[in-house]
Nucleic acid binder design. Structure first.
Length: 698
DNA sequence: AGGATTAACTTTTTT
DNA sequence: AGTTAATCCT
């Protein structure tokens, strides 16, 4: 019996889903149903072609995309495990957990996130007394070097720096690598790079995985970097069952090491590859699509690709020029209210995009004034939060007594008395004795010049960690372990004492961490190592969910999402495109970012720009974005200039003035810009409603 | 050792 | 403007 996977697919999609053997590249335009194609193809392979489910590997960039794929396939094939539908990093983690010993690492390695790496670099710089090098200056080149699988010597020598600096960089890089290895830690890049090393240097290991992964699919191929390309190529080059999906026009991460060129490289490496273009868009109205097509056509050297839709032109695109960013924000708020009232949409159908997070504050304020609920996506990540990092540091130290970063983070937390000097002594002793940093605390009497107070703190800390370690070794659950940590450290009490304002939110986060631990174990996860790896690999920020709120995010954060009403704010030269994008390549990436933004919209698109904007403490007069001029005028509708008020005010309303207190609105003049108000304190005044600090209270 | 002040920045951040 | 890191001061 053939599962009907082809119902509702167009001919191109069907061709893609039916593709079974050999290399294939799908050029999938925005909203053309690429996830459908990916999931249906996997289902087709399993159900109709008899392929074993676990011999299929599907790689994504985000956990969200991986989850979504698993979910959709499970809808077609109940009980499907999808254990190799993973992000690049998670898949590599799984492989390395099985085979990293070939490379001389321990199986229980830990993963360091970027802030950990930065701290590590900082301490390395200090040790070497390189005061003229900043950790950030090194972090990016090191990542870039690893992403490109470059030779360190060559890479640093080719940097545009003085010879002395190049040598310093190389020296720090070596010290950094040594230290990572010493504490049995891998950074994000290592996960990929070490996997390729494993495959290249140990043919029998590669053979095992090649036999395992008979079919490989890669999503968002335009975002792969060189090491990721190499990884996939290693696995696929023999049987060539490689199915890649990508859209060069949505490549917006080249600044992070992605090489969109990999799409062309794929065709060189697999000249026999079948290429299928998905150009029919099922998301946006004709006008929106038209605008997107016009803009992206300004980029050079594009593959010929033109999105079309069967749906009608729809509404025109609204383009508003606001006097300042405050009125731009009110324009957005008012149009959201209007859409809710007259078009029957919900808050969650609306999204506001901006180029930088700094732009969100003014908009938030306007939404709050109108009582519009909103949620900011992607601003602060859960596992980046201080309280979470603190608590996790205890667990990490239980796992890995070498974890010097976690140690330094928490050793001075509950009881004070350990500062820079003492830490230096501990570090030195650890080196002398070649002991893990934690175990040095067993020898506090050997630390010269240690005060009574410091010693007491250290000994208590050591006892605490031994207790946690015993709990973990005794097989206690993660939730119990977390409770023990919270209890013994009095973390909550300290939090409330020191941090009245944010304590509640922080406590909530700690609670959430406990839930995550419970969930991890309920889903069959086991072991502190794997849980901790998950906390690094799943950097989940606040996510678009089922709640009925307006979503606010950067253009980058909008990729992969869709909303019926989209507001693109700050469409100004210097803001979007960013003033930092100077070269043609950078400008074209900004344009692709704009293309991504526009193609998120289903029904209505609102573009706005301002005459003057307050940004970084200065008022700036920005010209309208070049992207606005790239949209044919016929697609645009320019609303009449009007003043957007904090709150719509009518005659007879009661208002509250910041200085004069409550008052009654007697009369409105000049189309409602000017009001005559009778204040209880201060008498009758005439004021401009767009300037005055007024709130409507009745 | 730890709080207080000042200087230095500020694009985007899938893992 | 607003945040964060580095430095100074007690």
């Amino acid at each position: 019996m053939e599962l009907d996977l082809f119902n509702g697919l167009n001919s191109r999609q069907t061709e893609a889903v039916r593709h079974t053997q050999g290399p294939c590249m799908i050029l999938a335009g925005a909203g053309s149903g690429k996830t459908k194609v990916l999931t249906c193809r996997i289902a087709n392979l399993i159900v109709n072609e008899g392929v074993s489910p676990d011999s299929i590997m599907a790689i994504t960039f985000t956990n969200k995309a991986a989850q979504e794929m698993k979910k959709r396939i499970r809808n077609m094939i109940p009980g499907y495990s999808g254990q190799w539908i993973q992000t690049f990093h998670a898949a590599c983690y799984k492989i390395l957990r099985m085979d990293i010993q070939h490379l001389g690492y321990d199986k229980n390695f830990v993963i360091m996130d970027d802030s950990d790496c930065k701290s590590l670099l900082k301490s390395t710089l200090k040790e070497n007394q390189f005061y003229d090098v900043k950790a950030e200056d090194l972090l990016y080149p090191i990542k870039q070097m690893k992403n490109r699988l470059a030779n360190p010597e060559e890479f640093f020598i080719n940097m545009k720096l003085s010879l002395e600096m190049k040598e310093k960089y190389l020296q720090i890089y070596r010290a950094y690598s040594r230290q990572l290895k010493e504490i049995n830690a891998l950074d994000f890049e290592d996960l990929i790079v070490l996997c390729t090393k494993l495959f290249r240097n140990f043919p029998e290991v590669l053979e095992k995985y090649r036999n395992w992964f008979r079919y490989i699919l890669v999503d968002e191929y335009q975002d792969t970097n060189m090491s990721q390309y190499d990884l996939i190529h290693c696995l696929a080059e023999r049987n060539k069952n490689l199915f890649i999906v990508g859209d060069p026009d949505q490549s917006i991460y080249s600044w992070r090491g992605a090489e969109p060129h990999n799409i062309k490289r794929f065709l060189k490496d697999y000249p026999e590859a079948r290429v299928i273009k998905l150009e029919q868009n099922y998301r946006s109205t004709g006008n929106i699509l038209d605008a997107a097509n016009h803009i992206i056509n300004y980029n050079t050297g594009r593959e010929d690709k033109h999105l079309f839709t069967d749906s009608g032109p729809g509404e025109l695109i609204t383009c508003f020029n606001a006097p300042d960013s405050f009125q731009e924000a009110r324009f957005i708020a008012e149009n959201i209210s209007e859409a809710l009232a007259s078009e029957g949409c919900r808050y969650r159908d609306c999204a506001i995009f901006y180029r930088t997070h700094a732009q969100s504050r003014v908009i938030e304020e306007a939404l709050t004034r109108r009582n519009i609920p909103y949620k900011i996506i992607g601003a602060s990540k859960f596992y980046d939060r201080k309280e979470i990092k603190d608590i996790l540091s205890y667990l990490r130290l239980v796992c890995n007594p070498n974890d010097i970063l976690s140690f330094e983070r928490i050793v001075n937390m509950s009881k004070k008395g350990v500062g820079r000097k003492t830490l230096d002594k501990i570090r030195t002793l650890a080196q002398e004795k070649a002991l893990p940093i934690l175990e040095v605390l067993n020898f506090t009497e050997e630390i010269a010049g240690l005060g009574q107070k410091s010693r007491a703190t250290l000994e208590e800390f050591y006892g605490m960690l031994k207790y946690f370690t015993a709990l973990n070794d005794g097989g206690s659950s993660l939730a119990d372990l977390l409770d023990a940590v919270l209890e013994t450290t009095s973390y909550k009490e300290t939090l409330i004492k020191n941090d009245h304002l944010e304590a509640e939110a922080r406590l909530e986060n700690i609670h959430e961490l406990r839930s995550l631990a419970l969930e991890f174990e309920q889903n069959g996860g086991s072991g502190l190592e794997e849980f901790l790896a998950g906390t690094v690999l799943v950097q989940e920020a606040d996510d678009v969910d089922d709640s009925d709120l307006v979503f606010m995010m950067t253009f980058h954060g909008a990729k992969g999402l869709e909303f019926s009403h989209v507001f693109m704010s700050g469409m100004e030269e210097g803001v979007f495109p960013s003033y930092r994008s100077e070269s043609r390549e950078e400008m074209e990436e900004e344009r692709r970012l704009c293309y991504v933004g526009i193609t998120r919209a289903r029904k209505r698109l609102f573009l706005s720009h301002t005459v003057t904007r307050l940004l970084y403490g200065y008022e700036r007069n920005n010209a309208p974005s070049r992207f606005l001029k790239e949209i044919p005028e016929g697609l645009l509708k320019i609303p009449a200039q009007r003043v957007y008020l904090h709150t719509p005010i009518q005659e007879g309303d009661t208002v509250l003035h910041r200085k004069f207190g409550p008052g009654n609105v007697l009369e409105l003049r000049e189309d409602g810009i000017i009001a005559i108000i009778d204040f209880e304190r201060g008498g009758t005044k005439m004021m401009r409603l767009d300037m005055a600090p007024l709130e409507k209270i009745g």
